[in-house]
Design a protein around this nucleic acid. Structure first.
Lengths: 214, 214, 214, 214
DNA sequence: GATGAATGAGCTTTCATTCAT
DNA sequence: TATGAATGAAAGCTCATTCAT
């Protein structure tokens, strides 16, 4: 999601950029941004958006506060850039699943969906914090929520092309929320209880998908 | 509700204990506490816990900041008192449903559950914000989450006493999260889309309950 | 030092007061004031003037903040009343010593002085806190410091009437500070070290007094 | 005096450690810290620790409140840094006196000691306020008090190496308090009275030292 | 470009004092 | 009279953001 970052001098032609004398500087900047976003992800995940501080993010990435502001104009910007980056990864996973969806049995589709979301949130614990943060959602956040719905709908459509699109459109948000539940169960329960509940959740989803998608 | 206001234990030093606010002893104080909590509910719902300010809460209730601190030691305390008050109301609704559960057809139970939660959250929009706020949950919050699970399990048990308790125990958190989803749908969608999605969600729940509770 | 308290209706004739219907009320007020001042003494001694709170003083005496302000107009007033009360006690002890001074051997006078001050400060630990508090001293405080000097001088004069008054006048503040040192040693040292140092201090004082008073 | 500024240990979470102010790394910061401590010394001396305000200290040094907190975490910290700085100066003076002590006649030692303390306190009027402030002493404060005793003892030992060390150990706190008295006389008296009393105090000390150190 | 320093509005909280019942 | 409630100025402190080197 480099497009969400304001790094000037981004060249369209990589060969061009490599030859330019400013290439090393640009490369260093890229690394800095990566490190800063990684640090931001950790801090946001640990404390939430409001309690996270710009100073803390800079410290976590062993940079100075000045460096942080060199790349991001506000704390909002940091969060948006981070979500943008994570969303790219999520789209990849969901699009990958969409391609495999037609080859799966319906109950397995439910399992695959759950795995997909649970793994993603495990890899990006700050994602939920940022996307579900209180207050009116930014356009990016609204877009993410809509994008998830659309992609879930696309997965369903790929798996069951014969089903009425209107039905799939209504199903998508339900499936989306079941995915969220699958993730959140992991925060509420543990051990055997978690295992049992997760099995129930998948059973519920599988039953639902079978009843609707045949 | 006075039980939700911190009544300090006997401190070693009465001069220190004096700093701790006490439950109101006069009618005026009762009214003030009611007003403060109502104001806090509005502000928390609108901005979330972190972005809410004590000054804002006091202003919303047309009290002085000093009055707010007369009855609540910290912002934390305000949130806990508010959650405590709301939880009492939630327990009443759930216990009421438990009493009616045996008389309902299984699909109607799903509907009744959804209505119960959706109505409650509509009446108390700050509840979700406070209960799901980031950071490690306080004992009260953990207790609330556990309490919901237990009461959902009790409702299921009342409705289907013949079912293995272990099964109900695994089902409860799943149903709990479906309830949460029912609420959250209202934040994501609107109009016809919301209606269709809600119907799907209830269908999923009804199918699940029927399959498990017979 | 009841004269420093603003208790209206103070009658000059006790018989008269006893006969009056308001006697019980007055008696209750007296008790209240005693209790409040005792509480204030504890709190001031424990935390110092600034860190002590009116609420804390009221709580310590199991009264309400309103009661406290019924008898004292400000926190300053409480401190002044307390010092006034304690100073009365100090004057009694010093005047008593002045009467015995002529009968004592000079080294014993030093010991008696030290005992007098150490005992007094042990009985009234808030006295030092209030009298030595930073900032410009109030007239009362200045008066106390002067009064101690005068009384020490009077003790010396009673013990050694033949000595030039000018000399005694110069000695008094020195003796006064040795007394203060005797008290403060108890805060710095303990056990055998304290004992040894206290013996040295008395030796120094005795030597000094003998050299000056013969 | 960077040693007096808190250098935080490696915290588990760098994002949290970031909140801790660091010693200045730039010349500008050094100057600012000097100015802040000088301002703090003035304000503490004038009002005492409790009544001094961080806002007042910042204003006195013509800095913003933010700059003050850039270098000091709390008001406590400011006081400790200031005392640390002053104590370094005191140690220098006392160690210098220790080196000269063997060359002085015993009565002159008393005078030199008095001059040393009186001058130091005149140069650093906030020192007494901070070191003798009510409440339980911090480790630094306790260390200062102990350090003074030890250095006084060292001075005595340097002057009179033949005297039993145990005796010197008992004398040190007494001499320490006489020094304090020498300083405090200046707050109680003035003009001719002060002069006379100071002469008496030195006489007492000289007599004491001669009697003990021969 | 990188970094530490500077800024100040605004936050939570305290407390002496006054009111009202 | 006795007491809890009310008030608000002011304190300590934080932190997003901007500056200057």
């Amino acid at each position: 999601m480099s497009s969400t970052l304001s790094i000037p001098g981004e060249s369209a032609d990589p060969a061009d950029a490599a030859a330019a004398p400013r290439a090393p500087r640009r490369a260093r900047g890229q690394l800095r941004v990566e490190a800063l976003l990684a640090a931001a992800a950790e801090v946001f995940a640990a404390k939430g958006f409001d309690a996270a501080t710009m100073t803390g993010i800079a410290a976590q990435s062993e940079s100075s506060i000045g460096s942080l502001y060199q790349f991001f104009r506000t704390k909002e910007d940091v969060a948006e850039a981070l979500v943008g980056q994570q969303v790219d990864a999520l789209w990849q996973r969901l699009d990958g699943l969409a391609r495999r969806a037609s080859a799966l049995a319906t109950p397995d589709l439910g399992h695959a969906l759950a795995v997909c979301f649970v793994d993603f949130r495990a890899d990006h614990p700050s994602f939920a914090t940022l996307v579900e943060r209180p207050g009116p959602p930014s356009p990016l956040i609204s877009g993410v929520r809509r994008g998830v719905r659309e992609r879930v709908e696309a997965i369903l459509a790929s798996h069951a092309p014969q089903v009425d699109r209107r039905t799939l459109h209504a199903m998508a948000p339900v499936v989306q929320h079941v995915m969220k539940s699958a993730v959140q169960l992991r925060g509420d329960l543990e051990g055997a209880e978690l295992k049992a509940a997760a099995r129930e959740l998948e059973a519920m989803l599988a039953g639902y998908l079978v009843s609707r998608l045949g």
